[in-house]
Design a protein around this nucleic acid. Structure first.
Length: 349
DNA sequence: AAAAAGTTCAACCGCCGTCTG
DNA sequence: GCAGACGGCGGTTGAACTTTT
């Protein structure tokens, strides 16, 4: 089934960048006759290109309704939200951004958004905090360096590595966040084996249900629970395709579709979303123009989109600081921070 | 100023689903 | 039901451009 028409039948056909003359010929032909069959178009238009190349050039560049220029924050927000639901369905995402092409969005995602999310410690595939070992190692190494630099600065009265206290703090927070994410998934997968928690002396966090990150009971999924009720997810998808993107996503993430097992079913049905079902933490997708305003203090994180929109100044780091200052939960966090900051070697899991 | 490294994005490639004879 | 034609999609490439060393 299927074939690549551009290859076999057309040797000697031109490839590579389009010239202004070719563009003009294509525009001229399509504006007069429409594109009709792409396969026969090049011949009819007098172009030495394959039909596929013409179609691509037209849909991605020459179409009159193409919107050029920078993506706005709103565009970015929509893309991230849609990506969290649809994954790499660039054409579906593009359908929600009039004038933007799938190719453009894909490129923008890969060159800008993806890097931004990675920098923030968010896995761009799952939209969750990264828990991969490399990332944790690099963070803990950075921490180690910052600790070393503070030792050196006390000793020598300067900071030869140029690491500011803020960086140290941010790194700790980042590491902590990932740590918790990792423990959280472990607490689901290995409920009967709190080895990791025991090692870190953190049992009270989850075993007695007082995890200050979650005011709701952790969602414990067993086997099939995390997987698929396709009808629920297709409902979401059809909502996405029928309604305004922002609204439908607010519904999905914000609560009109019930949370708990069903919510996890929705997420897990999508490709590469399986691990979300194992993880009770909410998605880290911010629906506000400021990305990454993951709010661990929000009650239950029930309505991320709403929360983030309503309090755009409330950043992730603000919340963490509040959390750390809070007397009731502070001791646990201090314990963790003590652990991370006194640990002279990278944490080995 | 020059070379190297990094980034961007238009274009290509190959696979897939649907249509048609 | 089968096979080819076709359009569409997502992943990848590589030239051009920019930034860093």
């Amino acid at each position: 089934m299927g074939r690549s028409p551009c290859r076999e039948e057309i040797s000697g056909v031109k490839k590579g960048p389009w010239t202004p003359e070719e563009d003009e010929m294509l525009i001229d032909y399509i504006s007069k006759h429409g594109h009709g069959s792409w396969r026969t178009l090049p011949k009819r238009a007098g172009l030495n290109r394959c039909g596929k190349s013409c179609r691509l050039r037209w849909t991605n560049y020459l179409r009159p309704d193409i919107k050029r220029g920078q993506f706005t924050e709103e565009d970015e927000r929509i893309i991230i939200n849609l990506h969290s639901v649809l994954g790499n369905k660039w054409s579906k995402i593009a359908a929600h951004l009039p004038g933007r092409t799938d190719n453009e969005i894909k490129n923008y995602w890969n060159t800008h958004i993806r890097k931004k999310l990675l920098k923030m410690g968010i896995d761009p595939e799952t939209h969750k905090p990264r828990t991969d070992l490399n990332h944790l190692m690099s963070l803990s190494q950075l921490l180690g360096m910052s600790n070393l630099s503070s030792v050196m600065s006390t000793t020598w009265g300067s900071n030869p590595l140029g690491l500011q206290p803020d960086i140290t703090q941010l790194t700790k927070i980042q590491l902590l966040q990932n740590l918790l994410q990792l423990m959280n998934s472990n607490s689901v997968v290995n409920m009967g084996n709190p080895y990791l928690l025991g090692n870190l002396n953190l049992n009270p966090l989850f075993l007695n249900g007082t995890n200050p990150l979650q005011t709701k009971e952790p969602v414990v999924l067993s086997g099939s629970q995390g997987f698929a009720n396709p009808s629920v997810y297709s409902q979401v998808q059809s909502e996405c395709s029928q309604q305004d993107a922002t609204k439908s996503l607010t519904d999905v993430e914000g609560g009109s579709i019930p949370k708990g097992p069903d919510y996890n079913k929705i997420s897990s049905t999508n490709h590469s979303r399986e691990n979300q079902a194992e993880n009770p933490l909410p998605a880290l997708v911010a629906a506000s123009p400021r990305m990454g305003t993951f709010n661990p203090m929000n009650s239950g994180c029930d309505n991320l989109a709403q929360t983030c929109t309503e309090s755009p100044s409330n950043t992730f780091f603000d919340d963490w600081e509040k959390l750390l200052d809070d007397e009731t939960s502070g001791s646990y966090w201090k314990e963790i921070l003590d652990f991370t900051s006194t640990s002279s070697t990278p944490i080995m899991w």
